[in-house]
Design a protein around this nucleic acid. Structure first.
Length: 353
DNA sequence: CGCATTTGACCGGCGC
DNA sequence: GCGCCGGTCAAATGCG
């Protein structure tokens, strides 16, 4: 009873995102990571893009948070971010992560990711990917983690997990007697942090908000969205960091089974292949719709900071163009990108608090 | 009127 | 077993 009341109270906590002023669109300084440098080094799948690109336009929808914030997942932990960051995987290196990526199309997304599939060492069990989409001046990091779902989740994803998903949705209240001892398998997730004034970033897909919950230890609520496309069970969670309100953590779950309703203009390598794999290009997709453009700028030396803040552009994409057969990491290295991609924290920079 | 959002209630997993 | 909590449902409400 009283508990209920309490809950209600919590649930009622509302966030007025609109209150965040554009004025403070400065690049943030991520909270100190909880891990040691070496920890980070071993952190499966955490790597960052760091570029010397010019600062992003103030009016860009958001600024990506530097990867080291990932180390600060602690705070995110309160946001359920730990969950998101289950980084206890055995991604020993960024390379393995890349390999992993190459073998595991991440949920959703029409964007193209030109990673080269290579013999995957140890496939991460599942797929929680944390990524800080990069912006011109920011860095991006991706982390991955696992849970019991393991590869199965991916298998599902590639095959018929939609069914599962739908089934899941439908059975919820009506036919709740779901397989009891079968743990609900989590969809692969992909998350990233961004610095933004708005919570719900437009990524080119249509989302319907279906819930909002107060987050423990955080004054900010978490919003739940579902892709409105019929049959597409992709979900998205959006929450604001309690430590730094300017940081928005977006988590995608699932894989879009349809192209983005909003096609980014002139997109660089946009793939309509919903499977996530461009057969001919060995590319795979990461659920990050428009961000690609920004990223492209990064490597384009074309300081066209015309990153539209409009609803159609934001999600980052890592444009790693490589030939094939080498490990992504080495390729990156070969192409002189590694330093850009696995810069600071990931590489043994002494970390201080 | 149709669609999106809000929000209280409900459910299931998990830790104690 | 109980309580907490994350996640979801669905009725009510808002909006174009």
């Amino acid at each position: 009873m009283e508990k209920r009341e309490e809950k209600k109270e919590l649930t009622r906590t509302t966030l007025k995102t609109e209150n965040f002023s554009m004025a403070n669109s400065t690049f943030i300084t991520p909270p100190p990571p909880p891990t040691t440098t070496s920890d980070i080094d071993q952190m499966p799948g955490v790597f960052a893009f760091s570029t010397a690109a010019p600062p992003p336009p103030i009016n860009s929808i958001f600024d990506m948070i530097p990867c080291d914030i990932i180390g600060g997942d602690q705070k995110a932990g309160s946001l359920g971010f730990m969950d998101l960051l289950d980084i206890n995987q055995d991604f020993g290196t960024a390379a393995s992560l890349l390999d992993w990526f190459a073998h595991n199309p991440i949920p959703g997304s029409q964007q193209q990711q030109t990673f080269v599939p290579s013999p995957a060492p140890t496939l991460p069990e599942t797929s929680e990917v944390l990524n800080n989409p990069a912006t011109p001046n920011s860095s991006a990091s991706i982390s991955s983690s696992s849970n019991e779902a393991g590869n199965d989740a991916f298998q599902q994803l590639k095959t018929g997990d939609q069914d599962e998903e739908q089934d899941h949705d439908k059975t919820k209240k009506q036919l709740k007697p779901k397989k009891k001892n079968q743990k609900r398998q989590r969809e692969p997730r992909f998350a990233f942090m961004t610095q933004s004034e708005v919570d719900h970033l437009d990524d080119g897909y249509r989302w319907r908000k279906y819930g909002q919950k107060a987050v423990k230890n955080s004054p900010y609520p978490r919003s739940y969205y579902r892709c409105t496309s019929a049959g597409c069970g992709v979900k998205k969670r959006v929450e604001r960091s309690s430590d730094d309100p300017s940081i928005v953590v977006t988590t995608y779950e699932g894989q879009h089974i349809h192209p983005s309703p909003i096609t980014p203009r002139g997109s660089i390598g946009i793939l309509a292949d919903s499977t996530g794999f461009g057969a001919a290009t060995s590319s795979f997709v990461i659920p990050q719709p428009q961000y690609q453009q920004q990223h492209a700028y990064m490597y384009n030396s074309s300081p066209s900071s015309n990153i539209t803040t409009s609803s159609t552009s934001f999600l980052p994409t890592f444009s790693f163009h490589q030939s094939r057969s080498d490990t992504p990491a080495s390729l990156l290295r070969d192409h002189g990108l590694l330093q850009d991609i696995v810069p600071f924290k990931m590489r043994k920079e002494p970390k201080e608090e």
